[in-house]
């Protein structure tokens, strides 16, 4: 009986270890495969030239600029809103007050909505209803709503981690509430907030469906926020789905993965700094 039990347990543990190994293997395979196949495409020209013939030739500079442009617009809108709402909820409202619950539930609902629905909304609201057309602005605004919950939640967690004495000491010294928040609470939670912003950059860079429906798929270099644009992820989609150029698709995928790797590394770095700062 005992021997059978041991055998069974060994088997189960083996399954669990295999599962973990499988996941590690899959991730490394995806990254390694794209690296090996894509590295040959990467050149100065690929990064700096505008795509021509639908992307069959030239580079992907306009898609890189489009990605950065969209992300910056989204962050400019979403960062103040996300931090502002987190500050309001944690510093001005009692925890679990009715209003806090309503805002938190909305943010949670937002984070559960699939990106294609954001795309539909962005299209009908920003592109058509507000008349912004397929543009960086429409895409950036849509992205801003998508990343708002992330920024809000990480900021809330960072603010809650600031010890209560910091606030009471500052107030006791005669500082006003806003002085306390802006000079004491926000600076001590900054790395935590930065982590949330970095994670949102990752989400913006990788987002495809919503951008496809709101920013269009123009190949030219976007200059004004009202210009249509295509992001790297959208460009990769077209190259792969329509079989325009697999070689260029690998190159684009490689650049995207490198960006995501850097962003993830930075997020971990700032998170570690935050935990370190709180401990000391």
């Amino acid at each position: 009986m005992k021997a059978y039990g041991n055998l069974k347990e060994k088997f189960i543990y083996m399954f669990i270890w295999l599962g973990a190994a499988f996941v590690a293997f899959t991730l490394l395979t995806i990254i390694a495969y794209v690296f090996v196949k894509g590295i040959g495409t990467i050149s100065w020209e690929f990064i700096t030239a505008i795509p021509s013939r639908m992307g069959k030739e030239g580079g992907i500079s306009s898609a890189i600029v489009g990605t950065i442009y969209l992300t910056v617009v989204a962050l400019l809108i979403s960062t103040p809103l996300g931090i502002g709402s987190a500050v309001y909820l944690t510093e001005y409202q009692k925890r679990n007050s009715r209003f806090s619950r309503a805002v938190e539930m909305s943010a949670e609902a937002l984070s559960g909505i699939p990106s294609i629905i954001f795309g539909l909304f962005g299209f009908i609201f920003f592109v058509i209803f507000l008349g912004l057309g397929w543009s960086i602005l429409s895409g950036g605004l849509t992205l801003a709503i998508m990343i708002l919950p992330t920024i809000m939640r990480t900021t809330q967690e960072a603010l809650r981690a600031v010890p209560e004495e910091f606030r009471s000491n500052s107030l006791a010294l005669g500082a006003s509430k806003w002085q306390t928040i802006s000079k004491i609470v926000l600076p001590s939670s900054a790395p935590g907030i930065v982590t949330g912003v970095i994670l949102s950059i990752g989400r913006s860079v990788g987002e495809t469906a919503a951008i496809l429906l709101t920013a269009g798929s123009a190949l030219g270099m976007p200059l004004l926020p009202t210009d249509p644009a295509r992001s790297m992820s959208v460009h990769l989609y077209y190259l792969a789905a329509e079989g325009i150029s697999m070689e260029r698709a690998y190159g684009t995928a490689l650049l995207l993965i490198v960006m995501i790797l850097i962003i993830n590394y930075l997020a971990n770095l700032s998170l570690r700094r935050f935990t370190y700062r709180l401990k000391s």
Binding site: I30, V34, G202, A253
Partner: peptide, 8 residues
């Protein structure tokens, strides 16, 4: 794994 874009 969670951070990789779905298009990838």
């Amino acid at each position: 794994l969670a951070g990789l874009p779905s298009v990838i």
